Computed example of a mutant assay.
Amino acid sequence: MAREVLVVVGLVVFAAAFRACRKNWTRKLGALVFLVASFLALYFLTHNIWAGMLAVLGWFFLPWIELLTRVRKMRLPIDNQLQHRDPPEDEFFPNASRALAAMSDAHFEHVGDSAWKWAGMEQYFRLHWNPEERAVATVCLCEQDNVAFAFLAITSRAEDGRIFRTTNFPFSPTLKNPPGFHCKHVPCERNCFHLMLQDHQSFLAKMKVTHDDLTTPDPENLEDEIEEEMRVQIEHNLQHGIIERTNDGHFRYSVRGLFFLWKQFAKDMIRLC
């Protein structure tokens, strides 16, 4: 029995070491090793392969604890509005200074700072635009319960209403994207704005969108466009039953929506950004 314990402990140590590495493939390998350790731990206790498989599958069903306790009780505003907010200090805004400097080098001009709240989470937006690129760049900070993460997004809009966005947002979307919205996710460690701008240009080329197909952003309407984009997405998800209205001007996730979120959580666990 001591040998089996040492095998499991050794695998857990290896998994933690791999997960601490910066390379994406090593972190994925660390997660795989951790699943193997979970399998062996229960297998050694029961000598049953199916018990070991249940130990592995159990990790993928852990999100249901949060889904059934916190998420199911959440009430989110249907008509949310951005408010002007002073940006957080740099120490609370990971990589903001470097990203903002890179935006300035790429001739993206600062437009304003806004924020809104979603069920205890606050999102800050630092908005920039470049009329020559016909694009809007955003540095966004999400804060909830003293946990914060930041991401970048570059958005272009076509004359026919389609929206094209490149982002290193580290998670799968929590709502279905409406028709006409096209998003390219790049790895979250790809936080160099110049590289993301190249990714965005390649994305537009892949979608066969030319520079002449794009509209020139109006810096006065950037906040209105974000609000309208959210309203369209909420309406799309109401129609598809992912969310449902409450009696107080809010919405909550339906049962179908909880299964949608669980699928998104599982994708994130497999992708291991």
Rank of each mutant, 00 (worst) to 15 (best):
T138I: 02
N221K: 14
F164N: 01
E220C: 05
H47T: 04
L11Q: 03
F251V: 03
C273R: 09
P94V: 13
T210W: 07
W50Y: 15
P87Q: 08
D218F: 04
A37V: 11
P88H: 02
A15E: 01
T138L: 11
W59H: 06
F259C: 14
L6M: 12
D79I: 02
T46H: 15
V9S: 12
W116Q: 04
K117N: 12
D248M: 15
R256G: 15
C188M: 05
G52C: 06
L127E: 06
M269H: 06
S254A: 09
V186A: 05
V9D: 02
T138F: 03
C273D: 15
C192L: 12
L258S: 06
D160S: 11
C21D: 09
F181P: 00
G10W: 00
I65Y: 10
V9I: 14
G52R: 05
N237H: 08
N191P: 00
L45V: 10
T69C: 02
R157P: 01
D79T: 04
H84T: 08
G58A: 15
K28D: 02
L195Y: 07
P170G: 06
V71T: 14
L141M: 08
E220V: 02
L35I: 07
L57T: 07
A135M: 10
L222A: 02
A41H: 04
E143D: 10
R22V: 11
H110N: 01
I154N: 01
L238I: 03
R245W: 03
V209A: 11
G120F: 12
G249I: 10
A148H: 13
L76S: 12
P63R: 04
A266S: 14
A99Q: 10
C21I: 08
I154M: 14
